[in-house]
Design a binder for these strands. Structure first.
Lengths: 128, 128
DNA sequence: ATTGGTGTATTATTGCACTGATACACTGTT
DNA sequence: AACAGTGTATCAGTGCAATAATACACCAAT
């Protein structure tokens, strides 16, 4: 059975669409929202929801398979594989690039750490 | 006189090189490290330091001029213009996209706010 | 066997970022 | 006047992301 993930795509952010998909699925797995044995929504389904090309989704799925997060079952779909890594380590590893970028920019702006905290505090409560 | 900014470029991050340059110069201005009247390093100079094409730097400079941060003096170079905005607002505005992306990813990973703080605490002290 | 659901290979086309080389207009200094 | 230093227009070429339309191989259920 396919799961309904709530995938978001931002076409204007500069990041490639297929990479945004890869990253989000990785996070959902690391979080535990996707468990071993779960099935990803079909390429055509995702493409329809996000108004993008099925082949773009396929490219993301191939990347996920290549990285070992997912298994391709012929004629069925993509199945989440059991992870061997520690969830906490995995989460930190996935968040690291954006974390570093945020700190880099904040420092280049001359912000203090407490100012940075304040901004995060705000943003954290913002969306519902 | 040209200033020696310490510009960084990450070719593998997916973000366009010219956009990375635009963003960094904007931050340096917002911080006050670049003041009105200061001159940006020449396109050829930056290109040489970062091993990129002078036309890529020129594209970034044109973008900065278009956004009103810098003035093009013929035969001289790019001169920083006086800003009318409040520095604090400007800083928050520039940091906002990355801030939102960080919070989005942290939440999608199921992290608590305090866990996010802890990671920032770490990363903040990491580089020198 | 047929149908409808998987993923995906293929080909062609578009758009963008970037490079490389060349050339031009402008300015300040000599 | 000559020169070296600005920015940049131009043209050609490369690489990558994404789209679009087909078509194929596979599986499950009827």
């Amino acid at each position: 059975m396919q799961k309904n993930l709530n995938l978001n795509i931002n076409p204007n952010i500069g990041t490639a669409v297929f990479k945004q998909l890869v990253d989000q699925v990785q996070r959902l797995i690391a979080r535990g929202q996707l468990l071993a044995g779960d099935q990803l929504p079909s390429t055509r389904e995702v493409a329809k929801q996000l108004t993008i090309n099925p082949m773009t989704v396929s490219k993301a799925y191939s990347q996920l398979e290549l990285e070992g997060h997912v298994e391709r079952k012929k004629g069925i779909g993509m199945i989440v594989k059991a992870s061997t890594q520690d969830p906490k380590e995995q989460q930190e590893s996935l968040l690291k690039p954006t974390l570093k970028e945020f700190v880099f920019q904040a420092k280049q702006l001359g912000l203090s750490k407490s100012e940075a905290y304040k901004l995060i505090e705000q943003s954290w409560s913002e969306d519902e």
